[in-house]
Structure formats: structure tokens, C-alpha cells
Design a binder for these strands. Structure first.
Length: 417
DNA sequence: ATGCTCCTGCGAA
DNA sequence: CTAACGTTCGCAGGAGCAT
């Protein structure tokens, strides 16, 4: 039954350090889009007390004081290195679930349970040697426990050398360990849930593990009951192997400066819809409806707040950029309110299903269908070969003044010549 | 009473 | 000098509506 959770250490920072070893041993943060806030921190930065998601402008003083190096995020690089890590890890088990850009689960049930700790060491060493990224390994009987074991490995609370196997602990050791960990560290327990649980005197992992499932079900949702079962070694969350396509596709961005004109908003929405449509076709899916949204800056408390979204049904399920853009722009028009300072817009493709399974309408015969398919195919090929947005729809505009600069981005070492 | 869509909130990385 | 706060996904559950 054992499952391993392998998580890369400070992943984005580790990626940057691979290609710029001068960053080794120095305090480094990677910033989100728009160089807005910290999305990855080196250990040196964590030691300074800088939190995940901290806005860059608010830590600039400490940054200057301690010589923190701030880098813009380079998702092409991280995505490529992630793929290499996952490929290396896949060698260690017949079953792998890639859970996020920097972590995956491996089913270890076919291996000798007595030597899993050594196996974890081998995993760690292999990824470090073959790819160059440091990882930690947590091993336990359920996914939730494996995540907790990984947390212990990272913090050095149990296990050794970045590997923690709960299978080596007896009941008493487990209880003591869990009693020392805040309940908010449990997978699925976030900020709000931590607050609610605190009112019921549940503050540690051990408190939650020993709580009555019936009582929790009555107070909260079924999700928390599953979490408690998993903490007790009863698997409730299956390992999901790749293959199931997404149910939604979201593309949204904040603007570096507020915009007010419908024309500018329209350009942004058209561009995001174009990106979303490309993802849709890559998944070989079609959308049946689309949600467009715009919002003011929620951090500006003295400015007028505004946040609207609208679902636009699509007459015919489609993956066609032009049709999706038309739908998005018509939706935008009806939620747009003039003279407001907008900070963000976005598009959500919904009701996705497999393309082949879609029905045709009365109006589009097979001929029109295949002609528009060909056009999208050609457009995708041109953009893949010549570069992003070589061919696109006119609505996207050419100025794109609402788009974001990246001040400190590293080179695309592994993906662009 | 039942089931659907839309929308919001929460949690995760 | 000032102002500068991410993105994408899934799930749960309530409101509103239709049957």
C-alpha cells in the first residue's frame, strides 16, 4: 500500500540556480507575473521570515538590507525542468501521478516495505545526479500521510537526509510527532478550515486524526472526513494516472496599470481567449460555454470596487478561436461599465468534452466543419514553427499596452536557441 | 422533490 | 518621486430556475 510523495525543494529557485550557480548560497526569490509577489523562496529567504505570496514592494527594504536577489518567473524553463524530473521519477514505479509542477506521487506497493527508506534515498540521489534538482521524499500508506511525511522530511522532523518513511514509526512515535505539527500543515486544511477547527480545540494533526468522523461530517464537508480517514491510514484518495482531460481552462492576468477603455479590455480578453483555445485544441476538447470576467483592484480600498462575470453559452460546442473570441467579446460588452479602473480580466472555457463526441448543428455541415478545423490546425502549426502569435485574430490587437513587462527574467536556457 | 446551471468560496501548487 | 499584491485547477454547496 505504501505511496511516496516526491517534492522538489524551492523548485523555481532551484531551476534558476541550475543555470546560474552564483545564486547558490545566496538569498533568492522568484516573483509572480508582473513581478508582484514571491512564489518561490530559497532557504536563506525563508530564514528571514519572508512568507509565500509576500508582495515584492513590501519586502523591498528587507531585500536591500540582506541583498536578496529577485528574479521574474520563467515558466518555460520551469516547465521543461519539471518534465525532466517527472521522467526521471517515472523509472521508480509502474504507477505515477504528476500532481503539480514540482511534485508527484509514486505507488510503491510492489516493493519490499522494509527497504523503502533506502529506495527513497536512491530516488533522491538519482534526480539530483541526472537532472540537477534537489528533492525530498515522504513515504506512507495514504496520499495525505505521504504529503505529511514529505513535510517532515523537509523540516527534518523525522527520517534523515530528506527522506521520511512513516512505516518506520510505531504508534507512540506517530502520536508524538503529529502532536507537534500544526493542523494547517495537513493537505486539504487551509486558512479558513484552520480557524474553524481552532474553535473546536483542534489545533494539531493529532487532534484532527483522533476527532470523531461523524461529528466532523456534521460540522464540515465530506472532504474533511476523507482527510481524517487518510490520516488514520485508510486510503480515500486514489492515485490518478495521467489521461483524464481537464474540465475547465482558465486564462487570466492582472494588468501592470489599471485600464478603463473597452477597446483595451477587449484586446486583453481576445488574447486570453486565443491562449485558452490553443490549450483546448491541445487537449482535443471542445467547449460548450465560456465565462468572461473583469475586476477592479481589490487592494485599493478607497477606489470603487467592481467584479463581474458572465457565462456565454455556445450554440455549438467548439474549439475555434474566432467563435470563442466573438462569444467572449459579446459577453464582455454586457458586463463592461465605463470609467472604472480595471486591474484584471480573464476567460474560462467550461463544459469541456472530447472533440469527437460533439454534435453538429443543422447549419454546419461536414464541409464547414473540416474547413474551420483545417484553419485552426494551420494557425497552430504556424505559431509553433515561427513563434507565438505569428498568426492570430485581429481582435487581439498589435499594441497590447496592457501587457506586462518582466524586469528580471532569466534566459530560456533549455527551450529557445 | 429532483436535477440542472451559475456563481462563490476554499484549497492546492 | 510614488506606487507598485499571481495563476490555474477541482470540489462543495447554495441560489435560482425548470420539470
Amino acid at each position: 500500500m505504501p505511496i511516496a510523495l516526491i517534492d522538489c525543494n524551492n523548485f523555481f529557485v532551484s531551476c534558476e540556480r541550475m543555470f546560474n550557480p552564483e545564486l547558490e548560497g545566496k538569498p533568492v526569490v522568484v516573483l509572480s507575473n508582473n513581478d508582484g509577489c514571491a512564489v518561490a523562496r530559497s532557504n536563506e529567504v525563508k530564514a528571514l521570515g519572508i512568507k509565500m505570496g509576500e508582495p515584492w514592494f513590501r519586502m523591498k527594504d528587507i531585500a536591500k538590507q540582506h541583498g536578496i536577489i529577485a528574479l521574474s518567473s520563467n515558466y518555460a524553463l520551469y516547465g521543461d525542468l519539471s518534465a525532466r524530473v517527472m521522467t526521471a521519477l517515472a523509472e521508480f514505479s509502474p504507477q505515477q501521478e504528476v500532481y503539480s509542477i514540482d511534485e508527484c506521487f509514486l505507488d510503491l506497493s510492489s516493493f519490499d516495505p522494509d527497504t523503502l527508506s533506502d529506495y527513497g534515498q536512491k530516488i533522491r540521489e538519482t534526480v539530483k545526479r541526472n537532472v540537477g534538482i534537489p528533492v525530498c521524499v515522504g513515504i506512507a500508506d495514504t496520499k495525505t500521510l505521504a504529503k505529511l511525511a514529505n513535510y517532515c522530511a523537509k523540516k527534518g522532523l523525522a527520517g534523515k537526509n530528506g527522506v521520511c518513511d512513516f512505516g518506520l514509526l510505531n504508534d507512540k512515535q506517530c502520536s508524538e510527532l503529529f502532536a507537534s505539527i500544526p493542523v494547517g500543515e495537513v493537505w486539504g486544511v487551509g486558512r479558513k478550515m484552520t480557524e474553524s477547527l481552532a474553535k473546536l480545540k483542534i489545533t494539531t494533526v493529532e487532534d484532527l486524526r483522533c476527532a470523531s468522523p461523524e461529528y466532523l461530517r456534521q460540522q464540515f464537508s465530506i472532504v474533511l472526513v476523507r482527510t481524517v480517514n487518510e490520516l488514520n491510514g485508510i486510503p480515500c484518495i486514489e492515485l490518478e494516472e495521467a489521461g483524464t482531460p481537464r474540465q475547465q481552462i482558465m486564462v487570466s492576468r492582472s494588468f501592470p496599470a489599471p485600464i478603463s477603455a473597452l477597446d483595451d479590455l477587449s484586446e486583453s480578453v481576445a488574447c486570453y481567449t486565443t491562449r485558452a483555445a490553443e490549450k483546448l485544441r491541445r487537449d482535443a476538447s471542445v467547449a460548450t460555454s465560456l465565462c468572461v470576467f473583469i475586476q477592479a483592484n481589490p487592494f485599493k480600498e478607497n477606489e470603487e470596487q467592481y467584479s463581474r462575470s458572465l457565462v456565454v453559452p455556445l450554440i455549438q460546442p467548439t474549439d475555434h478561436t474566432g467563435r470563442l473570441v466573438n462569444a467572449a467579446l459579446s459577453g464582455l460588452k454586457s458586463i463592461y461599465k465605463p470609467a472604472l479602473r480595471y486591474k484584471k480580466s480573464g476567460v474560462l472555457l467550461m463544459g469541456l468534452h472530447e472533440k469527437g463526441a460533439s454534435q453538429r448543428t443543422l447549419f454546419d455541415g461536414p464541409a464547414e466543419q473540416s474547413r474551420s478545423d483545417k484553419m485552426m490546425y494551420v494557425m497552430d502549426m504556424i505559431n509553433q514553427k515561427i513563434g507565438k502569435d505569428s498568426a492570430t485574430v485581429g481582435a487581439n490587437g498589435t499594441r497590447q499596452q496592457w501587457a506586462m513587462p518582466k524586469e528580471q527574467k532569466s534566459s530560456s536556457y533549455t527551450t529557445v536557441w
